[in-house]
Amino acid sequence: MTIKAVLFDFDGTLSTLRAGWEEVMVPFMKESIVGNQQLTEEENVRMDREIADYIDQSTGIQTVFQMRWLKEKTTAEGWNPEVLDEWAYKAEYNRRLLLSVHERINRMASGELRQEDYLMKGSLAFLQLLQDRGVEMYVASGTDHPDVVREAQVLGVSSFFREIWGAPVGKAECSKEKVMMDLIENKKLSGHEFAVVGDGKVEIRLAKEIGSLAVGLASDETVREGVNPLKEKRLLVAGADVIVGDFTNIDQWITWLGL
C-alpha cells in the first residue's frame, strides 16, 4: 500500500548541524561523573564503555532523559560530590553543543557555506518529491522545540512539514511514541500507510511496534552520504526494514514507499 505520511527524525537524519554531538556528550558525561577523582585504568575503561553503550542505546530520546541517566550515574559512582539535577546538566551540555551549531549557522549566514552543506545528500529533492506526491511529512525530535524549528528554518526545509515536534522546554514529556500514535489516530492511518525515517534505535523500534515501515538512515554525518557501519549495526538490531545512508537513490525510495 502507498505510504500516506512520513515521520522524520531530524538531527542525523536530515540535518547535520548537530553532527558531532556525541563528541560533546561523551567527555561532558565523564567529566561530570568523575570530577577530580583519579581513576584506575580498569575504572577508566569501564566508565568509557558504559557511557558509550548508554549513548548508543539512547540516541533519539529527549536529551533531558540522557541527563537524568547522568545524574543517576554520578550519584551511584560517588566520585564527584557535586551532583546537579538533569536540567542543569542539560543546560551545560546544550551550551557546549550550541557553540558549534551557532558557528555553522554563522558560516551559512556569511555565505561561506550553503544550506545543502548541512543537509543529508538528496534531502531537498526527496522532500520535494514527497510533497509533489501528496505525502504528508512531519518531524519528531528530542532536540528542544524552539531549536529544531529554528534549525529547520535555517536549512530551508521547515515549509515541507505539516508539523514539527521537538522537546518542550523545561518539560520531560515529548514522546516520539505519543507523536506516532496521535498521527495514526488523528489521520485515520493504518500502520502500513505510515513510514518512519530515522538514525536512532528509538524511532525504529517504535515504528516496528506500531506496524509501520521503519527506514533506518545509517548516515555518515561527516560526508553526508553513504552508510555508516556503526549506525547500520545499531539500526538492524532495532529492527529496521531497510537501511540506507542518504536520499540520493530516489528510485529506491519510491519503491520502498510505494509511490
Rank of each mutant, 00 (worst) to 15 (best):
A5W: 02
A5T: 13
V6H: 00
L7V: 06
D9V: 04
F10V: 01
F10L: 05
F10I: 02
D11I: 02
G12Y: 01
G12I: 00
L14K: 00
L14M: 08
S15Y: 01
L17R: 02
L17D: 01
A19N: 08
A19M: 10
A19Q: 06
G20N: 08
G20H: 09
W21E: 15
W21P: 00
E22L: 08
V24R: 00
M25L: 15
V26D: 01
P27I: 07
F28R: 05
F28D: 01
K30F: 05
K30Y: 10
K30L: 13
K30C: 02
K30W: 03
E31W: 10
E31Y: 09
S32D: 03
S32F: 05
V34H: 05
G35C: 03
G35L: 01
N36F: 06
N36D: 15
Q38I: 12
L39W: 06
L39S: 08
T40S: 15
E41F: 08
E41H: 09
E42G: 05
E42Y: 09
E43C: 05
N44Y: 06
V45Q: 14
V45D: 12
V45C: 08
R46K: 12
M47N: 10
M47T: 14
D48A: 14
R49I: 09
R49Q: 14
R49D: 14
E50H: 13
E50A: 12
I51F: 02
I51R: 00
I51T: 07
A52V: 10
A52I: 11
D53Y: 09
D53A: 15
Y54E: 05
I55W: 06
I55D: 05
I55M: 13
D56A: 10
Q57K: 14
Q57F: 07
S58W: 07
S58K: 06
S58G: 07
S58L: 07
T59I: 07
G60I: 05
I61P: 00
Q62T: 15
Q62H: 03
V64Y: 01
V64P: 06
F65H: 15
F65G: 03
M67D: 01
R68G: 09
W69S: 04
W69Q: 10
W69T: 04
L70N: 01
L70M: 11
T74A: 15
T74N: 05
T75A: 09
E77M: 11
E77C: 12
E77I: 10
G78D: 08
G78S: 12
G78V: 10
W79V: 04
W79G: 02
N80A: 13
N80D: 15
N80G: 12
N80M: 14
N80P: 03
V83P: 00
V83D: 03
L84E: 14
E86Y: 14
W87M: 06
A88T: 12
